[in-house]
């Protein structure tokens, strides 16, 4: 196991008007030189202790990094892929010692679980599903949902993992008659699952019974919306969407995220809040992540922007560092850090306060 060189760089300068601050605490350097595609944080048991580790994905290599003292990181395992490149890491909550990845070229062709042998000495890969996979999401209680096929042959499947990471059981959900773009859990409701579809509908499933409960058409102002988070409060469903195709509005600026409220009983919905870029900032949503009440997005301009969903406005901007645009951003699932990645493989860990 080779120790990788990491470094702590200077804290970047911030716009004093923005109340949030991002402090750079650590940097992981990718020595492979291949194109970096994703990052995630997960728990991994090392020598009897569960450690908050970082997983990095390049096109053909996924690596697990364990924390050392003083914000240094050591690469302990790597999984190699020869034929199909990695598209994304699929974080599965409530599970340790396992990472899922989606592989493919433009579309997902395979989902694999990455593990280690019981003695911890060799890496293992298990094929979970293959085919024309459209959407995938890790769910609470060691579950993973994926949809494959299109229209009449669309299949929506839940895989539940055993504690040792093996695939325990599979269950099918009733498919909607339109292609699913994304899935989202409903916070606090472990049996509910949402999906957004190509026809700008939000569908609701009961995960216990597999029933498709409702199809709700949302405002057509923004096409191809991605659902990031949902919660139910006082009989209403609140949903945070991002709008990759949103056009700039002269009055509002660029809407990147939006909070909508849905009455699932009547299927009526309305917009509650638009989360736009501050004046003077240009760019559309490219990629992003929502955790608790914080949303982070990489914009087409190469900048990362963060919104406090409760305050309703952008709280921090992170311009490109070292002349390199940002290409992906994730909130850490193991603490409150922000993981920001560049195409060349460098991952920056920020503390957001």
């Amino acid at each position: 196991h080779s120790a990788e060189q990491t470094e702590i760089a200077e804290v970047p300068a911030w716009d004093s008007l923005n109340p949030g601050t991002l402090q750079l605490v650590s940097k992981l350097k990718n020595p492979s030189g291949s194109c970096s595609v994703d990052v995630s944080a997960t728990w991994w048991e090392i020598a009897g202790f569960k450690e908050p580790c970082i997983v990095t994905a390049c096109e053909y290599v996924v690596s697990l990094w364990k924390p050392l003292d003083a914000w240094q990181w050591e690469k302990i395992y790597s999984w190699h892929f020869t034929e199909v490149p990695v598209l994304q890491i699929v974080a599965v909550p409530d599970i340790s010692n396992l990472v899922c990845v989606a592989l493919g070229n433009l579309e997902i062709r395979e989902i694999r679980a990455l593990l280690c042998s019981p003695d911890g000495k060799s890496e293992k890969q298990v094929l979970l599903s293959s085919g024309n996979i459209k959407a995938v999401l890790g769910l609470a209680q060691r579950r993973l949902v994926s949809s494959s096929g299109t229209l009449c042959d669309q299949q929506v499947e839940i895989t539940t993992f055993a504690e040792d990471g093996g695939s325990k059981e599979k269950q099918l959900l009733m498919p909607p008659e339109e292609t699913i773009l994304t899935f989202a859990e409903v916070q606090g409701m472990q049996e509910a699952l949402l999906g957004t579809t190509i026809m700008n509908n939000i569908v609701i499933w009961n995960l216990k019974t597999g029933q498709l409960l409702k199809k709700i058409h949302i405002d057509d102002s923004y096409q191809a919306s991605v659902c990031h988070k949902a919660y139910s409060e006082m009989g209403l469903l609140f949903v945070v969407l991002s709008h990759p195709c949103a056009k700039e509005n002269e009055l509002l600026g660029s809407p990147v995220f939006q909070l909508i409220v849905i009455n699932p009983k009547t299927t009526l919905s309305m917009g509650v809040m638009l989360y736009c870029l501050p004046h003077g900032q240009a760019g559309r949503f490219l990629e992003g992540d929502v955790k608790d009440h914080f949303a982070a997005a990489v914009l087409t301009s190469g900048t990362i922007a963060i919104w406090d969903l409760l305050l309703g406005h952008c709280t921090a901007l992170l311009p490109p560092v070292s002349g390199q645009n940002w290409s992906f951003v994730k909130w850490s699932g193991t603490d409150s850090h922000l993981l920001a990645g560049q195409k060349d493989g460098n991952i920056f860990v920020y503390r957001y306060t």
């Binding site: 049996e191 609701i204 409960l213 699932p264 009547t266």
Partner: peptide, 23 residues
């Protein structure tokens, strides 16, 4: 926004929709 525009609200919407879907 006005909650009244969303129609009658049920706190048990998930259970009610699940029962309706079983029929």
């Amino acid at each position: 926004c006005n909650k009244a525009d969303l129609g009658p609200i049920s706190l048990n919407w998930f259970e009610e929709l699940s029962s309706e879907a079983s029929l």
